[in-house]
Design a protein around this nucleic acid. Structure first.
Length: 510
RNA sequence: GGGCCGUUAGCUCAGCUGGUAGAGCAGCAGACUCUUAAUCUGCGGGUCGCAGGUUCGAUCCCUGCACGGCUCACCA
Protein backbone atom coordinates (compact mmCIF):
# COMPACT_ATOMS: atom_id res chain seq x y z
CA UNK A 1 0.00 0.00 0.00
CA UNK A 2 1.48 3.34 -1.06
CA UNK A 3 1.62 6.48 1.02
CA UNK A 4 -1.01 8.19 -1.11
CA UNK A 5 -3.41 5.32 -0.76
CA UNK A 6 -3.09 5.28 3.02
CA UNK A 7 -3.75 9.00 3.13
CA UNK A 8 -6.79 8.79 0.91
CA UNK A 9 -8.39 5.95 2.82
CA UNK A 10 -7.76 7.64 6.15
CA UNK A 11 -9.46 10.70 4.78
CA UNK A 12 -12.52 8.69 3.81
CA UNK A 13 -12.64 7.07 7.23
CA UNK A 14 -12.52 10.45 8.93
CA UNK A 15 -15.16 11.91 6.66
CA UNK A 16 -17.32 8.86 7.06
CA UNK A 17 -17.18 9.15 10.82
CA UNK A 18 -18.04 12.82 10.69
CA UNK A 19 -20.89 12.76 8.22
CA UNK A 20 -22.19 9.18 8.15
CA UNK A 21 -21.76 8.79 4.41
CA UNK A 22 -24.25 6.81 2.41
CA UNK A 23 -23.23 3.72 0.52
CA UNK A 24 -23.21 5.63 -2.75
CA UNK A 25 -21.07 8.41 -1.34
CA UNK A 26 -18.58 5.89 -0.01
CA UNK A 27 -18.39 3.99 -3.29
CA UNK A 28 -17.56 7.15 -5.21
CA UNK A 29 -15.00 8.31 -2.69
CA UNK A 30 -13.33 4.92 -2.81
CA UNK A 31 -13.24 5.02 -6.60
CA UNK A 32 -11.59 8.43 -6.40
CA UNK A 33 -9.05 7.23 -3.83
CA UNK A 34 -8.17 4.31 -6.08
CA UNK A 35 -7.64 6.59 -9.08
CA UNK A 36 -5.46 8.88 -7.00
CA UNK A 37 -3.46 5.92 -5.73
CA UNK A 38 -2.94 4.79 -9.33
CA UNK A 39 -1.63 8.24 -10.24
CA UNK A 40 -4.64 9.20 -12.35
CA UNK A 41 -6.21 11.81 -10.07
CA UNK A 42 -9.03 13.43 -12.07
CA UNK A 43 -8.70 16.59 -10.00
CA UNK A 44 -5.12 17.01 -11.21
CA UNK A 45 -6.26 17.52 -14.80
CA UNK A 46 -6.20 21.15 -15.87
CA UNK A 47 -7.45 21.44 -19.45
CA UNK A 48 -9.34 19.72 -22.22
CA UNK A 49 -9.52 20.86 -25.80
CA UNK A 50 -13.22 21.09 -26.60
CA UNK A 51 -13.65 21.49 -30.36
CA UNK A 52 -17.41 21.11 -30.61
CA UNK A 53 -20.58 21.33 -28.58
CA UNK A 54 -23.46 18.88 -28.77
CA UNK A 55 -25.77 21.01 -30.93
CA UNK A 56 -22.98 21.80 -33.39
CA UNK A 57 -22.49 18.09 -33.92
CA UNK A 58 -26.17 17.38 -34.32
CA UNK A 59 -26.95 20.38 -36.52
CA UNK A 60 -23.77 20.14 -38.56
CA UNK A 61 -23.83 16.37 -39.00
CA UNK A 62 -23.54 16.40 -42.80
CA UNK A 63 -20.27 18.28 -42.71
CA UNK A 64 -18.97 16.44 -39.68
CA UNK A 65 -19.75 12.81 -40.54
CA UNK A 66 -16.61 10.67 -40.06
CA UNK A 67 -14.68 13.76 -38.91
CA UNK A 68 -12.98 13.85 -35.53
CA UNK A 69 -14.41 15.98 -32.76
CA UNK A 70 -13.49 16.53 -29.15
CA UNK A 71 -16.28 17.11 -26.68
CA UNK A 72 -16.58 17.51 -22.94
CA UNK A 73 -19.39 17.45 -20.46
CA UNK A 74 -21.21 15.57 -17.78
CA UNK A 75 -21.92 11.86 -18.02
CA UNK A 76 -25.71 11.67 -17.75
CA UNK A 77 -26.65 8.21 -18.91
CA UNK A 78 -24.77 4.91 -19.28
CA UNK A 79 -26.30 2.09 -21.31
CA UNK A 80 -23.92 -0.81 -20.98
CA UNK A 81 -24.64 -3.65 -23.40
CA UNK A 82 -21.61 -5.80 -22.60
CA UNK A 83 -18.73 -5.37 -25.02
CA UNK A 84 -20.04 -1.98 -26.04
CA UNK A 85 -21.88 0.90 -24.41
CA UNK A 86 -23.79 4.06 -25.19
CA UNK A 87 -23.46 7.07 -22.96
CA UNK A 88 -24.97 10.55 -23.05
CA UNK A 89 -22.67 13.50 -22.52
CA UNK A 90 -24.31 16.78 -21.56
CA UNK A 91 -22.65 20.09 -22.28
CA UNK A 92 -23.82 23.71 -22.22
CA UNK A 93 -26.13 23.15 -25.18
CA UNK A 94 -27.60 19.74 -24.48
CA UNK A 95 -26.68 16.09 -24.88
CA UNK A 96 -24.95 14.01 -27.48
CA UNK A 97 -24.60 10.26 -27.48
CA UNK A 98 -21.20 8.57 -27.45
CA UNK A 99 -20.64 4.99 -28.58
CA UNK A 100 -17.72 3.13 -27.10
CA UNK A 101 -16.24 -0.32 -27.29
CA UNK A 102 -12.93 -2.01 -26.54
CA UNK A 103 -11.78 -1.81 -30.17
CA UNK A 104 -12.31 1.94 -30.19
CA UNK A 105 -10.61 2.95 -26.94
CA UNK A 106 -8.61 -0.12 -26.00
CA UNK A 107 -9.36 -3.05 -23.71
CA UNK A 108 -7.90 -1.58 -20.54
CA UNK A 109 -9.41 1.86 -20.97
CA UNK A 110 -12.80 0.35 -21.77
CA UNK A 111 -12.76 -1.48 -18.45
CA UNK A 112 -11.73 1.78 -16.76
CA UNK A 113 -14.58 3.78 -18.33
CA UNK A 114 -17.05 1.24 -17.01
CA UNK A 115 -16.13 2.28 -13.47
CA UNK A 116 -17.18 5.88 -14.11
CA UNK A 117 -20.31 7.23 -12.49
CA UNK A 118 -23.24 9.31 -13.63
CA UNK A 119 -22.38 12.91 -12.97
CA UNK A 120 -18.67 12.60 -13.71
CA UNK A 121 -17.22 15.21 -16.05
CA UNK A 122 -15.52 13.60 -19.02
CA UNK A 123 -13.75 14.39 -22.25
CA UNK A 124 -14.29 12.34 -25.43
CA UNK A 125 -12.43 12.35 -28.71
CA UNK A 126 -13.84 10.41 -31.63
CA UNK A 127 -15.53 10.58 -35.00
CA UNK A 128 -19.08 11.56 -35.76
CA UNK A 129 -21.44 8.89 -37.09
CA UNK A 130 -25.05 7.86 -37.10
CA UNK A 131 -26.26 4.72 -35.32
CA UNK A 132 -28.49 2.13 -36.95
CA UNK A 133 -31.41 3.75 -35.20
CA UNK A 134 -30.38 7.08 -36.70
CA UNK A 135 -28.99 8.90 -33.69
CA UNK A 136 -26.07 11.21 -34.41
CA UNK A 137 -23.28 10.07 -32.09
CA UNK A 138 -19.57 10.22 -31.44
CA UNK A 139 -17.62 6.97 -31.85
CA UNK A 140 -15.06 7.25 -29.08
CA UNK A 141 -11.34 6.88 -29.74
CA UNK A 142 -10.15 8.39 -26.48
CA UNK A 143 -11.97 9.04 -23.22
CA UNK A 144 -10.68 10.84 -20.16
CA UNK A 145 -12.20 11.35 -16.74
CA UNK A 146 -11.79 15.09 -16.15
CA UNK A 147 -13.55 15.47 -12.81
CA UNK A 148 -15.04 12.97 -10.41
CA UNK A 149 -18.50 13.65 -9.00
CA UNK A 150 -18.46 12.18 -5.51
CA UNK A 151 -22.17 12.79 -4.97
CA UNK A 152 -24.86 11.04 -7.02
CA UNK A 153 -27.15 13.07 -9.27
CA UNK A 154 -30.93 13.21 -8.85
CA UNK A 155 -33.10 10.72 -10.65
CA UNK A 156 -32.48 10.61 -14.38
CA UNK A 157 -36.09 10.61 -15.51
CA UNK A 158 -37.98 12.76 -13.01
CA UNK A 159 -35.03 15.06 -12.39
CA UNK A 160 -34.94 17.40 -9.43
CA UNK A 161 -38.48 18.42 -8.50
CA UNK A 162 -38.38 19.66 -4.91
CA UNK A 163 -38.70 23.46 -5.28
CA UNK A 164 -36.63 24.11 -2.20
CA UNK A 165 -33.71 22.07 -3.51
CA UNK A 166 -34.07 23.58 -6.99
CA UNK A 167 -33.64 27.11 -5.59
CA UNK A 168 -31.04 26.32 -2.98
CA UNK A 169 -28.96 24.07 -5.21
CA UNK A 170 -29.51 25.73 -8.55
CA UNK A 171 -26.45 23.99 -9.97
CA UNK A 172 -28.33 20.71 -9.69
CA UNK A 173 -31.44 22.29 -11.18
CA UNK A 174 -29.35 23.46 -14.14
CA UNK A 175 -27.81 20.03 -14.61
CA UNK A 176 -31.09 18.16 -14.37
CA UNK A 177 -33.71 20.42 -15.92
CA UNK A 178 -32.90 21.62 -19.45
CA UNK A 179 -35.76 24.13 -19.37
CA UNK A 180 -34.00 25.94 -16.53
CA UNK A 181 -30.83 26.33 -18.59
CA UNK A 182 -32.95 27.68 -21.45
CA UNK A 183 -34.67 30.21 -19.20
CA UNK A 184 -31.40 31.59 -17.88
CA UNK A 185 -29.86 31.77 -21.34
CA UNK A 186 -32.94 33.73 -22.37
CA UNK A 187 -32.51 36.01 -19.39
CA UNK A 188 -29.07 36.94 -20.68
CA UNK A 189 -30.44 37.51 -24.19
CA UNK A 190 -33.17 39.80 -22.86
CA UNK A 191 -30.71 41.90 -20.90
CA UNK A 192 -28.40 42.07 -23.89
CA UNK A 193 -31.31 43.15 -26.15
CA UNK A 194 -32.32 45.91 -23.76
CA UNK A 195 -28.76 47.24 -23.77
CA UNK A 196 -28.54 46.95 -27.54
CA UNK A 197 -31.72 49.00 -27.98
CA UNK A 198 -30.49 51.80 -25.76
CA UNK A 199 -26.84 51.71 -26.82
CA UNK A 200 -27.83 52.20 -30.46
CA UNK A 201 -29.87 55.23 -29.41
CA UNK A 202 -26.95 57.07 -27.82
CA UNK A 203 -27.70 56.23 -24.21
CA UNK A 204 -24.68 56.14 -21.93
CA UNK A 205 -24.64 53.25 -19.47
CA UNK A 206 -23.39 54.36 -16.06
CA UNK A 207 -22.85 52.88 -12.64
CA UNK A 208 -24.01 54.74 -9.55
CA UNK A 209 -23.52 53.90 -5.88
CA UNK A 210 -25.26 50.97 -4.23
CA UNK A 211 -24.08 52.09 -0.80
CA UNK A 212 -25.18 55.47 0.48
CA UNK A 213 -26.20 57.44 3.51
CA UNK A 214 -29.61 58.19 1.96
CA UNK A 215 -31.84 55.61 0.29
CA UNK A 216 -34.27 57.64 -1.77
CA UNK A 217 -35.94 57.70 -5.16
CA UNK A 218 -38.70 55.26 -4.27
CA UNK A 219 -41.13 54.40 -1.52
CA UNK A 220 -39.56 51.39 0.13
CA UNK A 221 -37.76 50.29 3.25
CA UNK A 222 -34.02 49.88 2.71
CA UNK A 223 -31.52 47.35 3.98
CA UNK A 224 -29.12 48.81 6.52
CA UNK A 225 -25.41 48.04 6.59
CA UNK A 226 -22.32 49.56 8.06
CA UNK A 227 -18.94 50.79 6.94
CA UNK A 228 -16.22 49.76 9.37
CA UNK A 229 -13.67 52.14 7.88
CA UNK A 230 -15.97 55.16 8.13
CA UNK A 231 -17.84 53.94 11.20
CA UNK A 232 -21.00 54.89 9.37
CA UNK A 233 -24.45 53.44 8.88
CA UNK A 234 -25.19 52.96 5.19
CA UNK A 235 -28.18 51.83 3.16
CA UNK A 236 -28.34 49.64 0.10
CA UNK A 237 -30.00 51.55 -2.69
CA UNK A 238 -33.71 51.21 -3.38
CA UNK A 239 -33.53 53.08 -6.71
CA UNK A 240 -30.97 54.72 -8.96
CA UNK A 241 -33.16 57.68 -9.84
CA UNK A 242 -31.54 60.54 -7.99
CA UNK A 243 -28.02 59.73 -9.12
CA UNK A 244 -29.05 59.27 -12.74
CA UNK A 245 -30.75 62.65 -12.73
CA UNK A 246 -27.52 64.17 -11.42
CA UNK A 247 -25.93 62.71 -14.56
CA UNK A 248 -28.55 64.55 -16.62
CA UNK A 249 -27.72 67.76 -14.75
CA UNK A 250 -24.09 67.10 -15.62
CA UNK A 251 -24.98 67.04 -19.32
CA UNK A 252 -25.02 63.34 -20.25
CA UNK A 253 -28.41 63.86 -21.95
CA UNK A 254 -29.25 60.15 -22.17
CA UNK A 255 -28.26 57.74 -19.43
CA UNK A 256 -29.29 54.40 -18.10
CA UNK A 257 -28.27 52.00 -15.41
CA UNK A 258 -29.31 48.38 -15.23
CA UNK A 259 -28.53 46.75 -11.93
CA UNK A 260 -29.70 45.54 -8.59
CA UNK A 261 -31.97 47.43 -6.26
CA UNK A 262 -32.65 46.20 -2.75
CA UNK A 263 -35.94 46.56 -0.92
CA UNK A 264 -36.48 45.28 2.56
CA UNK A 265 -39.97 43.92 2.01
CA UNK A 266 -41.98 40.78 1.66
CA UNK A 267 -40.99 37.92 -0.61
CA UNK A 268 -43.50 36.29 -2.93
CA UNK A 269 -43.80 35.09 -6.51
CA UNK A 270 -43.31 38.64 -7.82
CA UNK A 271 -40.84 40.08 -5.29
CA UNK A 272 -37.28 39.18 -4.41
CA UNK A 273 -35.43 41.44 -1.94
CA UNK A 274 -32.73 42.09 -4.53
CA UNK A 275 -33.95 42.52 -8.06
CA UNK A 276 -32.80 43.94 -11.36
CA UNK A 277 -34.13 47.25 -12.49
CA UNK A 278 -33.33 49.50 -15.39
CA UNK A 279 -33.76 53.21 -15.08
CA UNK A 280 -33.19 55.54 -17.98
CA UNK A 281 -33.36 59.31 -18.39
CA UNK A 282 -33.56 61.38 -21.53
CA UNK A 283 -33.12 65.13 -21.60
CA UNK A 284 -35.55 67.27 -23.58
CA UNK A 285 -38.18 64.55 -23.44
CA UNK A 286 -41.37 64.00 -21.44
CA UNK A 287 -43.52 61.11 -20.34
CA UNK A 288 -45.11 60.84 -23.79
CA UNK A 289 -41.68 60.13 -25.22
CA UNK A 290 -41.15 57.58 -22.46
CA UNK A 291 -44.35 55.79 -23.47
CA UNK A 292 -43.10 55.43 -27.01
CA UNK A 293 -39.71 54.33 -25.80
CA UNK A 294 -41.26 51.78 -23.44
CA UNK A 295 -43.54 50.12 -25.97
CA UNK A 296 -40.86 50.12 -28.65
CA UNK A 297 -38.19 48.77 -26.33
CA UNK A 298 -40.40 45.96 -25.05
CA UNK A 299 -41.58 44.92 -28.50
CA UNK A 300 -38.00 45.05 -29.80
CA UNK A 301 -36.84 42.77 -27.01
CA UNK A 302 -39.77 40.37 -27.42
CA UNK A 303 -39.22 40.18 -31.17
CA UNK A 304 -35.49 39.67 -30.75
CA UNK A 305 -35.64 37.04 -28.02
CA UNK A 306 -38.98 35.29 -28.63
CA UNK A 307 -39.18 35.80 -32.39
CA UNK A 308 -42.51 37.59 -32.04
CA UNK A 309 -44.07 40.53 -30.25
CA UNK A 310 -46.83 38.17 -29.20
CA UNK A 311 -45.95 35.90 -26.31
CA UNK A 312 -47.92 33.45 -24.24
CA UNK A 313 -47.87 34.06 -20.50
CA UNK A 314 -49.46 31.43 -18.26
CA UNK A 315 -51.90 30.57 -21.04
CA UNK A 316 -52.75 34.16 -21.96
CA UNK A 317 -51.59 35.78 -25.20
CA UNK A 318 -49.83 39.08 -24.55
CA UNK A 319 -49.25 41.42 -27.49
CA UNK A 320 -46.26 43.68 -26.89
CA UNK A 321 -46.38 45.40 -30.29
CA UNK A 322 -46.71 49.19 -30.16
CA UNK A 323 -48.85 51.16 -29.65
CA UNK A 324 -50.12 50.15 -26.24
CA UNK A 325 -53.42 51.29 -24.83
CA UNK A 326 -53.28 54.68 -23.09
CA UNK A 327 -55.79 55.73 -20.47
CA UNK A 328 -55.70 58.10 -17.53
CA UNK A 329 -55.92 56.78 -14.02
CA UNK A 330 -59.22 58.61 -13.45
CA UNK A 331 -60.74 57.21 -16.64
CA UNK A 332 -59.53 53.67 -15.89
CA UNK A 333 -61.25 53.65 -12.51
CA UNK A 334 -64.50 54.79 -14.15
CA UNK A 335 -64.12 52.34 -17.03
CA UNK A 336 -63.79 49.34 -14.74
CA UNK A 337 -66.80 50.16 -12.62
CA UNK A 338 -65.37 52.53 -10.02
CA UNK A 339 -66.46 56.06 -9.14
CA UNK A 340 -65.86 59.09 -11.35
CA UNK A 341 -63.07 61.05 -9.70
CA UNK A 342 -63.34 63.88 -12.22
CA UNK A 343 -66.37 65.02 -10.20
CA UNK A 344 -64.45 65.07 -6.91
CA UNK A 345 -63.24 68.51 -5.93
CA UNK A 346 -61.43 68.03 -2.62
CA UNK A 347 -60.12 65.59 -0.02
CA UNK A 348 -63.34 65.79 1.97
CA UNK A 349 -65.49 64.63 -0.94
CA UNK A 350 -62.97 61.93 -1.72
CA UNK A 351 -63.20 60.55 1.80
CA UNK A 352 -66.98 60.40 1.53
CA UNK A 353 -66.56 58.51 -1.72
CA UNK A 354 -64.10 56.11 -0.11
CA UNK A 355 -66.64 55.25 2.56
CA UNK A 356 -69.38 54.77 -0.01
CA UNK A 357 -67.28 52.39 -2.12
CA UNK A 358 -65.72 50.47 0.72
CA UNK A 359 -62.20 51.60 -0.11
CA UNK A 360 -60.99 51.79 3.49
CA UNK A 361 -59.50 48.31 3.25
CA UNK A 362 -57.36 49.34 0.28
CA UNK A 363 -55.93 52.37 2.06
CA UNK A 364 -52.62 52.22 3.84
CA UNK A 365 -53.30 55.13 6.14
CA UNK A 366 -56.28 56.03 8.28
CA UNK A 367 -59.07 57.53 6.17
CA UNK A 368 -58.83 60.93 7.84
CA UNK A 369 -55.15 61.22 6.82
CA UNK A 370 -55.90 60.36 3.19
CA UNK A 371 -55.88 62.84 0.37
CA UNK A 372 -57.90 62.60 -2.83
CA UNK A 373 -54.79 61.19 -4.46
CA UNK A 374 -54.45 58.36 -1.95
CA UNK A 375 -58.08 57.46 -2.47
CA UNK A 376 -57.89 57.59 -6.26
CA UNK A 377 -54.87 55.30 -6.11
CA UNK A 378 -56.76 52.90 -3.83
CA UNK A 379 -59.73 52.90 -6.20
CA UNK A 380 -57.41 52.21 -9.11
CA UNK A 381 -55.91 49.22 -7.30
CA UNK A 382 -59.34 47.92 -6.41
CA UNK A 383 -61.15 48.35 -9.73
CA UNK A 384 -58.70 48.66 -12.58
CA UNK A 385 -55.28 47.13 -11.91
CA UNK A 386 -56.17 43.45 -12.20
CA UNK A 387 -58.08 44.11 -15.45
CA UNK A 388 -55.01 45.42 -17.28
CA UNK A 389 -53.93 42.22 -19.02
CA UNK A 390 -52.67 43.59 -22.33
CA UNK A 391 -49.89 46.20 -22.02
CA UNK A 392 -51.52 49.43 -20.91
CA UNK A 393 -50.23 52.85 -19.88
CA UNK A 394 -52.06 54.32 -16.93
CA UNK A 395 -51.42 58.05 -17.13
CA UNK A 396 -51.59 60.98 -14.74
CA UNK A 397 -50.98 60.02 -11.14
CA UNK A 398 -51.89 62.11 -8.10
CA UNK A 399 -49.15 64.55 -7.14
CA UNK A 400 -49.08 63.54 -3.50
CA UNK A 401 -47.92 60.01 -4.29
CA UNK A 402 -45.43 61.24 -6.93
CA UNK A 403 -42.88 63.46 -5.20
CA UNK A 404 -40.33 63.43 -8.04
CA UNK A 405 -42.74 64.19 -10.85
CA UNK A 406 -43.72 67.34 -12.70
CA UNK A 407 -47.25 68.53 -12.19
CA UNK A 408 -49.70 68.56 -15.06
CA UNK A 409 -50.04 71.98 -16.62
CA UNK A 410 -53.43 73.27 -15.49
CA UNK A 411 -53.93 70.67 -12.73
CA UNK A 412 -51.38 70.84 -9.94
CA UNK A 413 -53.04 67.94 -8.08
CA UNK A 414 -51.95 65.57 -10.86
CA UNK A 415 -48.60 64.73 -12.39
CA UNK A 416 -47.20 63.70 -15.74
CA UNK A 417 -46.54 60.18 -14.69
CA UNK A 418 -47.51 56.81 -16.04
CA UNK A 419 -47.13 53.23 -14.99
CA UNK A 420 -47.48 50.43 -17.46
CA UNK A 421 -49.29 47.25 -16.58
CA UNK A 422 -49.16 43.81 -18.10
CA UNK A 423 -51.17 40.85 -16.85
CA UNK A 424 -52.41 43.01 -13.97
CA UNK A 425 -48.87 43.69 -12.79
CA UNK A 426 -46.82 46.82 -12.83
CA UNK A 427 -43.99 46.56 -15.32
CA UNK A 428 -42.71 50.12 -15.49
CA UNK A 429 -43.01 53.58 -14.06
CA UNK A 430 -42.13 56.86 -15.77
CA UNK A 431 -42.40 60.61 -15.40
CA UNK A 432 -41.82 63.95 -16.83
CA UNK A 433 -39.16 64.57 -14.22
CA UNK A 434 -39.65 67.34 -11.71
CA UNK A 435 -36.79 69.80 -12.32
CA UNK A 436 -37.96 72.77 -10.26
CA UNK A 437 -35.61 72.77 -7.26
CA UNK A 438 -37.95 74.81 -5.09
CA UNK A 439 -40.95 72.55 -5.72
CA UNK A 440 -38.70 69.51 -5.26
CA UNK A 441 -37.57 70.87 -1.93
CA UNK A 442 -41.21 71.32 -0.86
CA UNK A 443 -42.07 67.77 -1.93
CA UNK A 444 -39.19 66.38 0.12
CA UNK A 445 -40.39 68.45 3.07
CA UNK A 446 -43.84 66.90 2.70
CA UNK A 447 -42.26 63.42 2.59
CA UNK A 448 -40.23 64.23 5.68
CA UNK A 449 -43.48 65.06 7.48
CA UNK A 450 -45.00 61.74 6.42
CA UNK A 451 -41.89 60.03 7.71
CA UNK A 452 -42.29 61.77 11.06
CA UNK A 453 -45.88 60.55 11.15
CA UNK A 454 -44.51 57.02 11.00
CA UNK A 455 -44.45 56.23 7.28
CA UNK A 456 -41.04 54.57 7.07
CA UNK A 457 -41.44 54.26 3.32
CA UNK A 458 -41.69 57.99 2.70
CA UNK A 459 -38.89 59.35 0.51
CA UNK A 460 -35.72 60.36 2.34
CA UNK A 461 -34.70 64.00 1.89
CA UNK A 462 -31.73 64.25 -0.44
CA UNK A 463 -30.35 67.78 -0.14
CA UNK A 464 -27.52 67.27 -2.56
CA UNK A 465 -30.02 66.18 -5.18
CA UNK A 466 -31.95 69.41 -4.69
CA UNK A 467 -28.65 71.28 -5.02
CA UNK A 468 -28.06 69.59 -8.34
CA UNK A 469 -31.46 70.79 -9.60
CA UNK A 470 -30.44 74.29 -8.58
CA UNK A 471 -27.66 74.06 -11.14
CA UNK A 472 -30.35 73.26 -13.69
CA UNK A 473 -31.70 69.99 -15.05
CA UNK A 474 -33.16 70.23 -18.52
CA UNK A 475 -36.73 69.02 -19.02
CA UNK A 476 -36.30 65.28 -18.80
CA UNK A 477 -38.29 62.13 -19.24
CA UNK A 478 -37.35 59.15 -17.06
CA UNK A 479 -38.47 55.58 -16.77
CA UNK A 480 -37.88 52.49 -14.70
CA UNK A 481 -38.66 48.98 -15.90
CA UNK A 482 -38.60 45.92 -13.69
CA UNK A 483 -36.26 43.70 -15.67
CA UNK A 484 -37.13 40.58 -13.68
CA UNK A 485 -40.82 41.10 -14.44
CA UNK A 486 -40.11 41.60 -18.12
CA UNK A 487 -38.07 38.41 -18.09
CA UNK A 488 -40.92 36.58 -16.37
CA UNK A 489 -43.29 37.56 -19.17
CA UNK A 490 -40.88 36.68 -21.96
CA UNK A 491 -39.93 33.32 -20.45
CA UNK A 492 -43.46 32.42 -19.30
CA UNK A 493 -42.21 32.03 -15.73
CA UNK A 494 -44.75 31.84 -12.94
CA UNK A 495 -42.45 32.89 -10.12
CA UNK A 496 -39.66 35.45 -9.93
CA UNK A 497 -37.59 32.70 -8.29
CA UNK A 498 -37.59 30.87 -11.60
CA UNK A 499 -35.71 33.69 -13.32
CA UNK A 500 -33.26 34.61 -10.55
CA UNK A 501 -30.43 32.09 -10.39
CA UNK A 502 -30.03 32.21 -6.63
CA UNK A 503 -33.17 33.68 -5.06
CA UNK A 504 -33.10 34.86 -1.46
CA UNK A 505 -33.75 31.94 0.91
CA UNK A 506 -33.60 31.50 4.63
CA UNK A 507 -30.70 29.34 5.75
CA UNK A 508 -31.75 25.82 6.54
CA UNK A 509 -29.96 24.98 9.75
CA UNK A 510 -28.81 21.48 9.09
C1' G B 1 -47.74 38.25 9.80
C1' G B 2 -52.64 34.90 8.84
C1' G B 3 -54.66 30.40 6.40
C1' C B 4 -53.90 25.75 3.76
C1' C B 5 -50.39 22.03 2.29
C1' G B 6 -45.66 19.53 2.33
C1' U B 7 -40.90 17.39 4.65
C1' U B 8 -40.23 9.06 4.29
C1' A B 9 -33.53 5.74 0.81
C1' G B 10 -28.95 9.89 -3.27
C1' C B 11 -33.64 11.32 -6.46
C1' U B 12 -39.14 10.68 -7.74
C1' C B 13 -42.89 8.89 -4.84
C1' A B 14 -46.32 4.97 -2.06
C1' G B 15 -47.25 3.77 3.01
C1' C B 16 -55.18 2.44 4.58
C1' U B 17 -58.00 2.25 11.04
C1' G B 18 -51.31 3.41 15.47
C1' G B 19 -48.24 -2.68 15.52
C1' U B 20 -40.33 -0.38 13.96
C1' A B 21 -41.30 1.02 6.25
C1' G B 22 -42.00 -0.19 0.25
C1' A B 23 -41.51 0.66 -5.31
C1' G B 24 -39.01 2.80 -9.55
C1' C B 25 -34.59 5.17 -10.84
C1' A B 26 -29.60 5.50 -8.89
C1' G B 27 -25.77 1.99 -6.36
C1' C B 28 -23.23 -2.98 -5.89
C1' A B 29 -22.32 -8.18 -8.29
C1' G B 30 -23.26 -10.73 -12.89
C1' A B 31 -25.11 -11.43 -18.46
C1' C B 32 -25.48 -8.93 -23.14
C1' U B 33 -21.34 -5.36 -29.50
C1' C B 34 -26.73 -0.40 -32.05
C1' U B 35 -28.78 1.20 -26.98
C1' U B 36 -31.51 5.69 -25.90
C1' A B 37 -36.38 6.07 -19.22
C1' A B 38 -31.91 -0.10 -22.77
C1' U B 39 -33.06 -5.13 -21.05
C1' C B 40 -32.44 -9.55 -17.79
C1' U B 41 -30.82 -12.09 -12.80
C1' G B 42 -29.34 -11.31 -7.78
C1' C B 43 -27.99 -8.02 -3.53
C1' G B 44 -27.39 -3.91 -0.24
C1' G B 45 -29.33 0.84 1.22
C1' G B 46 -33.77 4.56 6.28
C1' U B 47 -32.18 9.60 12.71
C1' C B 48 -39.71 8.64 8.44
C1' G B 49 -37.47 17.35 9.14
C1' C B 50 -36.32 18.52 14.71
C1' A B 51 -38.09 18.50 19.93
C1' G B 52 -41.72 17.16 23.25
C1' G B 53 -46.56 14.70 24.50
C1' U B 54 -50.48 10.73 24.39
C1' U B 55 -50.04 5.31 24.12
C1' C B 56 -48.02 -1.19 25.97
C1' G B 57 -46.39 0.61 21.17
C1' A B 58 -46.07 6.64 16.89
C1' U B 59 -43.92 7.63 9.91
C1' C B 60 -49.25 7.72 11.34
C1' C B 61 -52.65 11.07 16.73
C1' C B 62 -51.58 15.96 19.64
C1' U B 63 -48.35 20.42 20.74
C1' G B 64 -44.22 23.40 19.62
C1' C B 65 -40.22 24.60 16.35
C1' A B 66 -37.44 24.75 11.52
C1' C B 67 -37.46 24.96 6.28
C1' G B 68 -40.29 25.10 1.81
C1' G B 69 -44.72 25.66 -1.54
C1' C B 70 -49.46 27.95 -2.50
C1' U B 71 -52.55 31.87 -0.93
C1' C B 72 -54.21 36.42 1.63
C1' A B 73 -52.05 40.72 3.77
C1' C B 74 -47.74 43.81 3.04
C1' C B 75 -44.98 45.58 -1.22
C1' A B 76 -44.46 51.57 -6.62
Amino acid sequence: MSQEETGAEDRIDEESARKALSEQQLVRREKLAKLQAEGRDPFAIVTWKQTHHSTEIKQGFEGLENKDVSIAGRLMSFRDIGKAAFIDVQDRDGRVQVYLNAEGIGEENYAHVKTWDLGDIIGVEGYVFKTKRGEISVHAKRMVLLTKAIEPLPEKYHGLKDPEQRYRRRYLDLVMNPQVMETFKKRTQIIRAVREYLDTRSYIEVETPILGTIASGAAARPFVTKSNALNLQLYLRIATELYLKRCIVGGMERVYEMGKDFRNEGIDIRHNPEFTMIELYQAYADYNDMMELCENLCSFVAQKVCGSTKVSYQGTEIEFAAPWKRITMVDSVKLYGGPDFSLIKNDEEARELAKKHGLEEELKKKLKDCSKGDILNAAFEKYAEKELIQPTFIMDYPADISPLTKQKPGDPSMTERFECFVYGRELGNAYSELNDPIVQNDRFMQQAKERELGDDEAYMFDEDFVSSLEIGMPPTGGMGIGIDRLIMFLTDSYSIRDIILFPTMKPNNQ
